[in-house]
Simulated scan of single mutants.
Amino acid sequence: MADKDSDLFFEEMGDVKPLKSKDKANLTVQQEITPGHIVRRASAVTEKVVDDNHLTSTDHIEMLSSNDVLEYKQAGIQHGVYKKLRMGRYPVEARLDLHRMTVEEARKEVFRFIRDCMKYDLRTVIILHGKGDRNPDKKALLKSHLAKWLPDMDDVMAFHSAQKHHGGTGAVYVLLRKSENDRQANRERHGLR
């Protein structure tokens, strides 16, 4: 059966001649440019992507050193809750590693990370920012920006530098606001309205 197929193939291809090196196929396709093409191209160049990230990266922040401790809590956070966070006694539900990122990359990642954590009802997370010991001036650039960014986020209730086994002053525990679903479940569990 295979011999019949090859015989048929050679019979069909018998008068085909290979292209000479000077013979080139013209593969360019002429596409008509419509006014719609022009508008779309212009808007792709001029329109900016809407950035809903309100965190700013600026040179005008207080620079922290590698051993400075990050700490913050909103009014109303119970002392016991904050102490438990500080001691690393809450399970870490998610982790973000900022090592080797630029400030701008970190700004975008922190915003996205916190937004995603809220979407999935996570309460306690850790962000690894590094100590800044490798920087020539020993200043902790990402840590300094985090100290400014985290309090600016409504969903961040508290944060504190991590325990040594989680990265010490090169990482920070973050306590996030309860989602509405979690708050409702808590009300029902405790018989509140």
Score class of each variant (00 low, 15 high):
Glu32Asp: 10
Ala147Ser: 13
Leu70Cys: 09
Asp116Arg: 13
Lys20Phe: 14
Glu105Pro: 02
Gly191Arg: 11
Gly170Ile: 04
Asp68Lys: 01
Val103Leu: 12
Val110Gly: 01
His145Phe: 01
Glu62Ala: 10
Ser65Thr: 14
Gly36Leu: 12
Val50Glu: 07
Met157Thr: 04
Pro35His: 01
Gly80Ser: 13
Phe111Met: 02
Met153Asn: 03
Leu64Gln: 10
Lys178Gln: 15
Asp97Arg: 02
Lys22Leu: 02
Cys117Ala: 15
Asp51Ala: 04
Ser144Phe: 03
Gln163His: 07
Val174Ser: 00
Gln30Leu: 14
Val125Ala: 00
Asp7Phe: 09
Ala171Tyr: 00
Gln163Glu: 11
Arg115Thr: 02
Ile38Trp: 02
Asn186Arg: 07
Glu11Phe: 14
Tyr82Ile: 11
Lys143Trp: 03
Asp51Ser: 09
Tyr72Glu: 12
Leu85Ala: 08
Val69Met: 06
Pro151Thr: 09
Tyr90Gln: 04
Ser43Gly: 00
Val103Lys: 05
Asp68Pro: 01
Gly168Asp: 09
Tyr90Ile: 14
Lys164Leu: 15
Lys143His: 12
Gln163Arg: 15
Ile33Pro: 00
Gln74Met: 02
Ala171Cys: 10
Asp116Gln: 14
Lys48Gln: 04
Leu192Cys: 06
Met118Pro: 01
Gly130Arg: 07
Val92Pro: 00
Val125Trp: 00
Ile77Thr: 13
Ile38Glu: 00
Val172Phe: 01
Met153Glu: 08
Pro151Trp: 09
Ile126Pro: 03
Lys138Asp: 08
Gln163Ile: 12
Asp155Gln: 13
Ala2Met: 14
Arg115Asp: 05
Ile127Trp: 04
Gly130Asp: 02
Leu8Gln: 03
Lys148Met: 14
Asn26Met: 05
Asn67Gln: 07
Tyr72Gly: 08
Met157Lys: 00
Glu104Lys: 02
Asp15Thr: 05
Met153Ala: 01
Glu62Ile: 08
His165Gly: 06
Val156Arg: 06
Met118Thr: 05
Asp59Arg: 11
Asp3Thr: 09
